[in-house]
């Protein structure tokens, strides 16, 4: 029972971590919150849904959701961040991104309606026995995809020139530009990466919950914000660990306590952690990788 809930939690937490890592990357380079990131996640889910409904295989729906979310991220950077970056206060981009999130929710309501849309069963969900634990093939796919994407992100940030440029920009944009880094381009790259990961999480969680609504991104977005705070603002590995932690707490509360209080437990743990460690589990080392 415990092992079973841990597996459920890992799978949920992996998806939360994918969203939270995006938040923290964007916060790392801009010191700004992207409050429409939950809606990027939601739109990614709908793009995947549309493809799955059209008969596309799951991997194609996943890639499509990532691509759609990445394009949306590009547009949001252009429309809601670049015009107000370095000008005005920190509150301005909060408002512009809240506006974007409302526009996206209502656009999806217009297209698909406000009611939940069932996510088609894209492949045969077969139970797999791993010792005392039974997982479904879907759970394995979700967990495996989340882990693979995070490993890939880690590799990009550590080992590629793009990753070095992003980390330099996160630490000191002026110095990065003196080293030859096109800071605006690095910021765009961060939005593309962060949004693609959120889109992937959207498709994965939509398949997991078997339905999506236009407001699907609100709660997950808030939870991912909590995950980012738990992991330490701007700290990418912190967001990965924080995501898994929040997912596991949620799964355990569903398994042992009351499933209707799952969000209360998830946020309760966040509050407890922040009371003890106000800068999160791994401190506020911005963009430490």
């Amino acid at each position: 029972m415990l092992a079973q809930q841990l597996v459920n939690g890992l799978q949920l937490g992996g998806a939360y971590a994918l969203v939270a890592v995006g938040y923290t990357l964007i916060f790392g380079v801009l010191n700004l919150l992207h409050l429409a990131h939950g809606e990027v996640f939601m739109v990614g889910a709908y793009v995947g849904l549309a493809l799955a409904l059209a008969g596309a295989p799951f991997w194609a729906a996943l890639l499509g959701g990532m691509a759609g979310a990445a394009v949306l991220g590009l547009v949001i950077e252009r429309v809601a961040f670049r015009p107000v970056r370095d000008r005005g206060s920190h509150v301005t981009p909060l408002m512009t991104t809240i506006a974007v999130s409302l526009v996206l929710q209502h656009a999806v309501v217009k297209l698909y309606g406000a009611e939940p849309v069932a996510f088609p069963q894209v492949f045969a969900v077969v139970p797999v026995s791993l010792g005392p634990v039974t997982v479904t093939s879907l759970q394995l796919v979700i967990l495996g995809t989340s882990l693979a994407l995070m490993a890939l992100l880690d590799l990009v940030l550590r080992r590629t020139w793009l990753g070095r440029a992003i980390r330099a920009t996160a630490e000191n944009p002026t110095v990065a530009s003196l080293l030859g880094v096109n800071v605006s381009l690095a910021i765009v790259a961060v939005f593309v990466l962060a949004s693609a990961l959120a889109g992937a999480a959207g498709v994965l969680l939509a398949a997991n919950f078997t339905a999506v609504t236009p407001f699907f991104g609100v709660k997950v977005g808030l939870k991912a914000l909590a995950v980012m705070l738990v992991g330490g603002l701007g700290n990418v590995p912190g967001a990965m660990v924080g995501g898994v932690l929040v997912g596991v707490v949620e799964a355990l509360s569903v398994g042992y306590l009351a499933s209707s209080y799952r969000d209360a437990f998830a946020f309760g743990v966040m509050i407890l952690i922040l009371l003890v460690r106000p800068t999160g589990l791994f401190g506020a080392r911005l963009a430490a990788v």
Binding site: R167, A168, E171, T174, V175, R285
Partner: peptide, 12 residues
């Protein structure tokens, strides 16, 4: 340009 204050990336 090596700026005043050196501009070392402390977390790298």
């Amino acid at each position: 340009h090596v700026p005043e204050g050196r501009g070392i990336l402390a977390r790298m």
